[in-house]
């Protein structure tokens, strides 16, 4: 039973309550840094680190943090993790850091992270909070990657910098530019909602059939 509970918290974030496709949170990094798959993954991993780290701390200290100052405390914790991620990336992968630029410090303003602290980590035991954070962060990473992959494939004819279609490929320049982010996200959301609509329709049909039989 306990195991199922953790699993449930994890899967919820990846698919059913996906922070990007369903909750439409964290749009700023989503649109800004997904012009290549590698940038998207770097951003996703940085967010993963920050979200899981701060969820552990917030959840462990949830009895000590007075509710009047809880948001300030969450922000201090998150900001610390963001700074750590910022310097680590700068030291380890300066190229990626240059591409992500101002968007690493801006992770602190990602409403997904503060939202999880307020809605989940500050109310549940640490073990569940970790699974929730991992699920949400994995869902965010998945969304970033799917956007980054589509944009890099169309915009550059490559994935992770490896050319897929040979030299003659005509790049879709718009996909690398900001409008491409909006377009791709819109199309992915369209498919997500269409899929959900079809599923609900199917379930309703099944229920109808069961009732009549």
């Amino acid at each position: 039973m306990k195991k199922n509970e953790s699993y449930e918290e994890f899967v919820k974030g990846v698919w059913r309550d996906n922070p990007v496709f369903v909750q439409v949170l964290g749009m700023c990094p989503m649109l800004a840094v997904t012009n290549s798959a590698i940038n998207a993954i770097a951003m996703g991993l940085a967010t993963f680190f920050v979200l899981v780290g701060s969820s552990i701390l917030v959840s462990s200290f949830r009895h000590w943090i007075p509710k009047q100052v809880r948001i300030s405390c969450f922000i201090i914790i998150i900001a610390t993790f963001v700074t750590i991620a910022d310097y680590t990336l700068l030291a380890l992968v300066p190229k990626v850091h240059k591409e992500l630029g101002a968007f690493i410090p801006l992770i602190v303003a990602n409403c997904l992270i503060l939202g999880r602290q307020e809605a989940f980590a500050s109310r549940y035991p640490t073990r569940l909070a970790v699974f929730d954070a991992m699920g949400m962060a994995a869902g965010f990473l998945l969304a970033l990657f799917s956007l980054g992959a589509v944009r890099e494939i169309l915009g550059d004819g490559a994935l992770f910098g490896v050319k897929l279609f040979g030299e003659n490929f005509e790049p879709w320049v718009i996909m690398i530019l900001p409008p491409g982010g909006f377009l791709t996200l819109g199309v992915i959301l369209l498919f997500f909602n269409w899929f959900k609509y079809k599923k609900d329709e199917f379930l309703a049909e099944v229920a109808e059939a069961e009732r009549s039989s």
Binding site: W172, V173, I174, L177
Partner: peptide
Amino acid sequence: AFLLATFPIA
């Protein structure tokens, strides 16, 4: 406009 932004050279 989409074409111009996407394939500026062509």
